[in-house]
Design a protein around this nucleic acid. Structure first.
Lengths: 215, 215
DNA sequence: AGCTAAATTAATCGAATGATGAACCACGCC
DNA sequence: GGCGTGGTTCATCATTCGATTAATTTAGCT
């Protein structure tokens, strides 16, 4: 499994295969779940031999965790960059822009929600890892923002822990179910029109509009 | 595969195993998806031999469809019974009660949403079957109800085809992700308190409150 | 340039999967 | 009450899966 605690620099090509394997794994795991995805298909999608998987990651389980790491890395990066430019901006605007960013992320990376859904259905060691390592930290960041809203006296939609999953579901379900949406409604959730309408709907549903701050 | 176009009455025990297999299949497919679930585990969960599956259903694929049939049957039954008692009641109250019923159904049968999610991730013959046979008919029933709301001039949340999936996601995500919710927040989405709070939140989010009709 | 460790692949293994067919059992029907 | 079909299981097959191993190629280091 590449246990080389050694002095040599990793080859460039190796980093590339690793990256391509992770990307392919994200897609496969998101589509078919942990048990439904096969390392062979993942490797084929990445253009390498199946045995490259246990070499680079040791185990299908560890490949899955690397994929989760990659996905949440993208989300952290994106939301972090958004938050970084908002120092000092009022809470309501911050929340609005953050939610907008989240909607666009869900549209750009529907795999994240699918990935979590695939693992969220039953208790498992993988789920515990996911929650402890990524979900809880992410949630506590958002908690700060939304607590600020409540302190404004706006109509809070409810306790944070509850709103959290309702919001996630409302935002990302059209993307997690994109193929079904297309079949059932004929609309394309990834079109710019849909994304804008969806953003607007989410803002209207979840961000209280204080009497003065509209516009 | 039980191709008996014949005269004999089916034995009582056969119907029972069929039913138990379907119930087990619903659980397994909802948890692990089509490819992740195994007919052996399903049979074991139902207390019969693995070969009983191909006997009764012919194919894993057909077993899956039977499971979908069963799930949507439950939903139709429940919503149908609710609607039957509401003839002549005003649209807003109808919508409120229907949504309440849907929340309680999502809590009682989280497998439905999980089942749909598992199959909604990629195009497949199974997805086409699901949409054509169950999703579209179900949606067109609801469409009638919500079109009535718009005609009242209440603040419509948006076009039906869009609201549809947002609502589904908001309502059922806490239940589809119940194990994760428990791990991350310590709350139990199936507790009566949570269900009531969730119902209230869904009503507040999705049913417009006309100036007069509150209470 | 040459040595050597790292990276990749091909070959293979044991376990699990879905399906088939034969043997056995049980129940509806007359 | 026993005949016969419907129902169930057991044994088995071909396939697929994840992982291990050995052999081969690639590239970092001096």
């Amino acid at each position: 499994m590449m246990n080389h605690a050694s002095t040599r620099r990793p080859q460039r090509r190796a980093l590339e295969t690793r990256a391509r394997l992770i990307e392919a794994a994200i897609g496969e795991f998101a589509e078919k779940g942990f048990e439904g995805a096969s390392t062979g298909e993942i490797a084929s999608r990445a253009g390498v031999a199946q045995s490259a998987v246990p070499y680079h990651f040791g185990t299908k389980d560890l490949l899955w965790k690397a994929a989760g790491e990659g996905l949440f890395g993208l989300l952290r990066e994106r939301l972090g960059a958004r938050l970084a430019g908002l120092d000092g901006v009022d809470v309501l605007t911050t929340a609005r822009l953050l939610l907008t960013e989240f909607v666009r992320f869900a549209a750009a990376h529907p795999e994240l929600h699918r990935f979590m859904l695939q693992e969220g259905t039953g208790p498992s060691e993988r789920l515990e890892w996911l929650v402890a390592k990524h979900v809880v930290p992410m949630a506590s960041v958002l908690e700060g923002v939304f607590q600020g809203i409540e302190s404004l006296g706006g109509p809070s939609p409810g306790p944070m822990t509850h709103v959290f999953y309702v919001l996630i579901g409302a935002v990302s379900t059209p993307y997690a179910l994109a193929p079904q949406v297309r079949l059932a409604t004929g609309e394309d959730p990834f079109s710019e029109d849909y994304i804008e309408a969806h953003t607007e709907m989410m803002l209207r549903l979840f961000i209280p509009s204080l009497p003065d701050s509209d516009g």
